[in-house]
């Protein structure tokens, strides 16, 4: 769309159409998010005004955030806990589980990815195949036996249990991703380090991973985002504030008879913050990994 050329009527129409389409795309993508954000900073009176809505709040307020995170006695869900208690534990659980699962996945995927990319061992292609087989396998085909296994192990409703599950079900994809990234790093510096007497693990840590760092960052961020957004696994494997993440806490509020939408919106916006930060600052890393892992 360079504008240097002469403006004929046909070209003018085409440009106008293009900009209309671009604006439509922006509105379609952004409007629902905008409305949730506006709802979260509106007063109840403005938000519930009919038939005219206040598209821009006249008296923007953070009171809804204060309410859901402090008093929050308006609605009780998931037992008889006030919403503030549930939200605090939700934020804590979501952060801890997502951070630790992403860290474990980065570490384990680097190790296994390195082995598959660079080392020779018996059963290599068989094991690789057995792992790839699991990449598109959805968690629910093993859910029932998994539930019994987790009960026996005492891991129901624990953050440790969630981390174990997310790491196990994410591992095939992220190992595969890491091995493609490591395969793309040059071999010669690694061999130089090995000749200098470094062990394989040392070479991985000091020579290979620094080169494959963008890939590692991508694995970490995509894993974090996937765990943060997950709903089905925590819905089934948690049942109290001991481990329930934000998504499950939100779903408990939705189930109530009367929803206080202004407060609910504030809670939803809190859940949206990490994903939006990812889109803003780490898009490059996240999009590639997510696109490759889409089948999961």
């Amino acid at each position: 769309m360079s504008g240097a050329r002469e403006m004929t009527p046909a070209r003018l129409v085409r440009r106008l159409g293009f900009w209309l389409a671009a604006i439509a795309l922006a509105l379609w993508s952004l409007a629902p998010v905008y409305w949730i954000v506006v709802s979260s900073i509106s007063t109840r009176i403005e938000l519930y005004s009919v038939p005219y809505k206040h598209w821009i709040p006249r008296a923007p307020t953070l009171q809804n955030y204060v309410d859901v995170f402090t008093t929050g006695p308006k609605y009780r869900a998931g037992g008889f806990l006030p919403s503030a208690t549930l939200l605090y534990s939700g934020v804590r659980n979501s952060l801890l589980v997502a951070l630790l699962a992403a860290a474990c996945l980065s570490l384990l995927a680097s190790l296994a990815g390195y082995a598959f990319a660079r080392l020779n061992f018996r059963g290599r292609s068989f094991l690789f195949f057995m792992m790839l087989l699991l990449v598109p396998l959805p968690v629910w085909v093993s859910l029932i036996a998994l539930f019994q296994l987790m009960s026996v192990l005492g891991l129901i409703d624990t953050r440790l249990g969630l981390i174990l599950l997310f790491v196990s079900y994410g591992a095939p994809l992220y190992v595969w991703l890491m091995q493609t990234y490591i395969r793309a790093t040059p071999r010669d510096i690694e061999e130089a380090a090995l000749i200098d007497g470094a062990s394989r693990f040392r070479a991985l840590r000091t020579v290979v991973l620094p080169v494959a760092l963008p890939g590692l960052v991508s694995v970490f961020l995509v894993a974090f985002l996937t765990v943060w957004n997950a709903f089905l696994i925590p819905l089934i494997f948690t049942n109290s504030e001991a481990a329930q993440p934000l998504t499950v806490v939100l779903s408990l509020f939705i189930g109530q008879y009367e929803v206080a939408w202004e407060a609910m919106s504030a809670a939803a916006v809190v859940t949206m913050i990490p994903p939006i930060l990812m889109a803003l600052f780490f898009q490059h890393y996240v999009v590639r990994g997510l696109a490759l892992g889409a089948v999961q």
Binding site: S29, P32, V33, W35, I36, N229, F231, P275, A279
Partner: peptide
């Protein structure tokens, strides 16, 4: 960036929205 945002958000929250 704007157009990628819906995909980044938790689908559960999108249903709520």
């Amino acid at each position: 960036t704007i157009a990628i945002v819906p995909w980044m958000l938790p689908p559960l929250v999108n249903g709520f929205t």
